[in-house]
């Protein structure tokens, strides 16, 4: 009984405490910024991981997100929830990272080579991976990059197709078709796993 009251009180005071940290971080307080990091970095990392499907890149980009956040925190006007705003910052940093990576790869491979080598689109997470990931996360990680990005942004993060199309520089129709493609691939791979499970 008492415990539940304590938890309720924590929930009640958490937003105002967060506002205080945001205000202090805007004034240049690294201690307050660290508190914001402690509060949000797991969510930011989860989004980075799902979009990038690679642990090392996700960790690097998660760091980059917080460095960008430190630079841009004064742009946060409080019109939306801080976590919502931080998620949009994260999505943008991840997409910028992917674009840079693509540009770099395109520079490294010559045009001739590009005809024989395709850019690495799919992540290399094995389906029997035992890293503590949810089964669905492992299947999402195996999706082709565009389908994965659209699926994560639409189904997991709740963006609209119009927003996703703008972020990924594609037509709204393409975003929808990538989503359907992702859904079909996921359903297929999840069904296969279920079938194997049944046979065993």
């Amino acid at each position: 009984m008492n415990n539940s009251k304590v938890i309720d009180a924590k929930k009640l005071f958490a937003p105002s405490q967060e506002q205080e940290w945001i205000a202090q971080a805007k004034q240049g307080s690294q201690a307050a910024f660290h508190q914001l990091y402690e509060l949000h970095h797991r969510q930011v990392y989860a989004l980075c991981w799902r979009m990038l499907a690679d642990k090392d890149s996700a960790e690097d980009v998660c760091q980059e997100v917080f460095v960008v956040l430190w630079q841009k925190i004064n742009n946060f006007r409080g019109e939306s929830k801080f976590s919502t705003w931080l998620h949009s910052v994260t999505s943008n940093v991840v997409l910028t990272h992917l674009r840079k990576q693509k540009n770099w790869l395109q520079r490294v491979f010559s045009i001739e080579q590009q005809t024989s080598y395709s850019l690495p689109e799919e992540a290399t997470v094995p389906l029997d991976d035992s890293s503590g990931l949810e089964e669905l996360d492992r299947h999402i990680a195996k999706l082709p990059e565009r389908a994965r990005l659209v699926f994560v942004l639409f189904a997991v993060e709740g963006y609209r197709h119009e927003e996703i199309a703008g972020m990924l520089n594609m037509a709204v129709g393409s975003s929808k078709s990538q989503y359907h493609r992702a859904k079909a691939l996921l359903k297929e791979s999840l069904s296969e796993v279920a079938l194997v499970g049944e046979k065993l």
Binding site: R42, Y45, A46, E59, C62, E134, D137
Partner: peptide
């Protein structure tokens, strides 16, 4: 049911 948070290593 996907977790909203993940812990970096």
């Amino acid at each position: 049911k996907l977790p909203k948070e993940m812990q970096p290593e």
